[in-house]
Design a protein around this nucleic acid. Sequence first.
DNA 1: CCATGTGAACCTTTTCACAGCG
DNA 2: CGCTGTGAAAAGGTTCACATGG
Lengths: 207, 207
Amino acid sequence: MRYARIPDETVRRLPIYLRSLSYWTDLGRERISSKDLAESVGVNPWQIRKDFSYFGQFGAPGVGYDIASLTKHIKKILRLDNDKEVALVGVGNLGNAVLAYSGFDRYGLKIAMAYDMNPKKIGKTVEGVTVEDFADLSKLPLRKVKLAILAVPTGIAQEVADRLIAAGIKGILNFSACHLVVPKSVKVTHIDIAMDLASLPYYLPTR
Amino acid sequence: MRYARIPDETVRRLPIYLRSLSYWTDLGRERISSKDLAESVGVNPWQIRKDFSYFGQFGAPGVGYDIASLTKHIKKILRLDNDKEVALVGVGNLGNAVLAYSGFDRYGLKIAMAYDMNPKKIGKTVEGVTVEDFADLSKLPLRKVKLAILAVPTGIAQEVADRLIAAGIKGILNFSACHLVVPKSVKVTHIDIAMDLASLPYYLPTR
DNA sequence: CCATGTGAACCTTTTCACAGCG
DNA sequence: CGCTGTGAAAAGGTTCACATGG
């Protein structure tokens, strides 16, 4: 069943594997078994083997997976093989945290530009990125950026999203507390910190 | 099938409904149909009706749902009916953003204390919360806090998680880039910004 | 008549068991 | 013999169609 449709859940897990593989690479390891990889990411070994089976044969039976080639292949599947620039919109508290975050390199992702509407912020350089005027969003197509991180107040999120899409953005990581209405050709991933926290109490022991 | 085991996916969606309901409440609306609610959160009407059916009968056929009583009931299901205090560990860029985030009230959640190991930060007050010494984590049980947000560097995340659990924490929102190993009685929700961004390119149009 | 509640069908994902290969 | 790859079974979730009730 090689290269058949890959389940969404598998796609969601691939970056997790990638993160762990980069960890093992840093430690100088060359091969890893589904069992060891499973343990380090917190899933079952057969889940991992099944996931990898969707995109061909990889491991050597009796030996395991070659970390370097597995990494390369997962990156290709996820289209992370070429470095990608990402635009950040909204340089408030959260935007600053995103700019300071160091975990993007591993995936070949780079926050290459930042936008804000506050005149006091425009022109300043944060973490090596100069904050540009929100009004210049329309010039985005020139830079061929396809991904954006939306870290603006909820009230203007939809409007900003519309403008991002008009500027050619095809993938949005949305931090604001609202559902975005977008064309089918645009993929939105949503992070709502409060919401994630809100589902925890349900799982707390009742006592 | 009332009050039978509620699917995890339904539990995950309940806070989304809650968020939308609070929006409609603010607008002064009293009743809402599954169709309207569905539209405002981006799911199907029958999904919503099915979700609600797990915990009893609510709506009035031909009329819709009473927003106030529905809100109350969802909060009860999620155990958000009593206000809950949350401990934040790690007051770096991300920790600051979490402290400044205003979306917790809606769920009856409140970041009531913050911890850091940096002497320069200890004692300072950020967003009304005074940063305490990391070493005082062990005093946490006295405050009956069950939830914590982990916003520390990846390298020390597991160690800090162990200490949180030792201090009686039962639910952790983990922002660090690693899988936490915890006892079954502890629930961990994981947010990895880079990882969420990393799965977007897969869904980009190939052209 | 309109909108809910739900059994049944359908689809997706996970788990299992084991064949196959170095 | 150890570990991968995979069909098949089981579980979990979504969609549908329609009975029901104000």
